[in-house]
Structures are given as structure tokens and as C-alpha cells.
Design a protein around this nucleic acid. Structure first.
Lengths: 182, 182
DNA sequence: CTGAATTTTCAGAACATTCTGAAAGTTCAT
DNA sequence: ATGAACTTTCAGAATGTTCTGAAAATTCAG
């Protein structure tokens, strides 16, 4: 139950890995999540390591991180020492959590620094240059605020639309798959 | 005209650098853009290098990349060998170009790979497992499509709203700044 | 054309990230 | 309580990225 993977599942895992890497996470995170997503049953760490040819350490840290992001869950089986893991399957839940958490942190830190920059600029002697710098800093701050607002509203209000759209698509897909499957 | 920078401008440049880095580009790109954004006049490469304490090489590649992303423009001065550069100031123009270009490329490549994964999975003997894997791959594909659609519509339709919101904010800001500036 | 000014390129250095493998730590069935 | 089963941690290796500095290429005023 766990040769190194090949074929469809590996292809998939690597594709997801690349997307995730493109989004600024480690590729391993995407690969591990994908493997769990494609499985019918929860997997143990050692199993994942073998399928993806990763070391125990890499799997352990990846699973830890995935859980912190809330995209993988731990599953206990009664009377078993071993821990099993399964993937969160609700894409929206994952996206919204990750986007909100990541951007919220960044937004705070950046707004802080721009405020400090503005204060520092105000300390300079008045001049056309100073006024220009101040105006540009204010514009940057304003943009940060707008961006945050847009992201927030996207996360909150678009959720319904997104799900509706998504469900529609996956329903047509599911119908097609059901027809195909034997 | 170009000691190593300090104070407000450096603070700003580094803040922008970090944001940009968080979005998966080199920090240097953000810093160079920010310096140009804060300046009243176009700057030459050597000038930028000194202000940000970067090597000529780093500045050259950064400016090249920024131009390819359309967020920095080259400016000629008649009878001058030297090239000058200025920042694009329309945030939306920048965001939409970068987002669309980056995500379009990724979306294509990923959809391709998922299709190949599906084909490969179909080659396996029919079984409950195969059906499940296929269904999950289809869901991933569907999600990729939805995500692309959402991004596209965001880029196109939200543009108006975004600009309206942004202008509102920057107008109030501009008024305040104008009042302050002597 | 020429050559000085300027930009681009690129090999290697410096730095940063991620992985491995094994030791240390934890947990639970007994 | 014990110890086998399993997980986490971490130092060092491997890998990947970005920068430097100088050589090569380009450009344009004269």
C-alpha cells in the first residue's frame, strides 16, 4: 500500500504543487494536499512520504503547516497509535482562509510602515519636494486601504456567487462523470 | 544628486519592496518602482543605484523587468545619451496587467496538466478508486475554470468600481495634503 | 566613424530556502 | 509504568535565488 506514485496522481500532485508554489507556499504543501485530496481514505505520514518520495521530516512539517492553514485535518482511528490525515475539500473555505489570513497580516504591517514614513517626511523642511513625497505616500496608504477593502468584500460578499457558480459547474461535471463511471 | 537614501523614502521603498516580494517578485523591483514613484522627475540608472545602494547590474535587470510589466517607463531627454525612468502611477493599470498576465499563464498550464492527468487516469482499469480519482480531477479542473472566470470578471467589471472608490479616497487625501502644504 | 558614456550580460559570490536523516520527544496499548 | 510505534525537531547538505562587479556590447554626439 505505497509505492512511489506515478501516472495521473503524480501529475496532479505536481500541478497542484506548482500552483501552490506560485502562490508563495512550498511546493511540498500542494503535493501533500493533492495526494490526500485524490485518496478515498485518510493516509498516514509514512504512506505519504513513500508515495511522494519525501523524507519523514518534510512530510511532518508539511502536514503541520497544512493543518495550521486548515486545509488538512487529522483523523483518529480508535485503538491506533498512528495518525491519519484527510484533505479539506471545500475550495472556497481554503481560499478564503488563506487569502484573508495572509493579506490581513501584510496590510497591517504595510499601513504601519507607510504611516511612519509619512511622519518622517513631515519632519523635513517644507518644500515642493516634501509636499510631493507626502502626497505620494498618502496615495500609497489610500491604495492599501482600498485593496484591503476590495479583498474583504470579495471574501465576504462574493462567497455566495462563487459557490453558486462553482456548484453549477461541478454539478454538470458530476453528471458527466456519473454517466461515464461504468 | 544621490546619496544613499534614508528616512521617509527608504522606509517607503522597503515597505513596497516587501509587498512586492510577498506577491512573488523580487524585492528590488518594488524598491526601484517606489523610488521612482516618490520622485518628481525621472531618474537615471546610476542615480537609482546610489540611492538604493544597489549594483549597476541589479538596477539594470530590475528596470528591464519593471518595463516588461509595464509599471515603469523609459523617458528620453533630447541630446542626452543617458536614459531616464519614471513610474507608472495608475495602480489599477499595474494590478490588472500583472494579475491577468501572471494568472493567465498559470491557468493555461495547470488546465493542460489536469487534462493529461484525467486522460492518464482513464487508462486505468475501471474500479471505484478510478472513478473517485477521476471525479476529483474533474473537480480540480472545474475549480481552475471558476477561478479563472472570477479573476477575469474581477479584472474587467470591477475596474470601474475600484477606480471610483480609489478616486474618492485620493481626492479627500489630496484636499488634505493641499491644505497642509504651506 | 570613433570613442566616451552608458547599459546589458554573466560567472561566481553571497545569501536564502527547503530537504534529509537521525536523534530526541511523545503517545498509547498493554 | 513500560516500550514499541510513531512524530517532531534540527544540524548540516543540497538546492535555488539574487546580487556583485567587471567585461562585453551598445549607443550617440561629435
Amino acid at each position: 500500500m505505497s509505492e512511489p506514485l506515478e501516472g495521473a496522481e503524480l501529475l496532479c500532485a505536481d500541478a497542484v504543487g506548482d500552483v501552490i508554489e506560485h502562490w508563495g507556499f512550498r511546493k511540498a504543501l500542494g503535493r501533500v494536499w493533492a495526494i490526500l485530496y485524490l485518496e478515498t481514505v485518510p493516509l498516514g505520514a509514512a504512506d505519504i512520504a513513500q508515495r511522494l518520495t519525501m523524507s519523514a521530516g518534510a512530510v511532518s512539517t508539511s502536514l503541520g503547516e497544512l493543518q495550521r492553514w486548515g486545509v488538512v485535518r487529522r483523523v483518529w482511528r480508535p485503538g491506533e497509535r498512528k495518525e491519519y490525515f484527510e484533505a479539506e475539500t471545500d475550495f472556497w473555505k481554503m481560499i478564503s482562509k488563506v487569502v484573508s489570513e495572509r493579506e490581513r497580516f501584510l496590510a497591517e504591517s504595510v499601513k504601519d510602515r507607510l504611516d511612519r514614513a509619512a511622519t518622517s517626511a513631515e519632519a523635513a523642511p517644507k518644500s515642493a519636494k516634501r509636499a510631493h513625497v507626502l502626497e505620494r505616500i498618502k496615495r500609497l496608504s489610500a491604495f492599501a486601504n482600498v485593496a484591503q477593502a476590495v479583498l474583504d468584500s470579495f471574501i465576504q460578499s462574493q462567497r455566495a456567487d462563487f459557490q453558486k457558480f462553482g456548484n453549477l459547474l461541478s454539478l454538470t461535471r458530476a453528471a458527466k462523470v456519473a454517466k461515464e463511471a461504468s
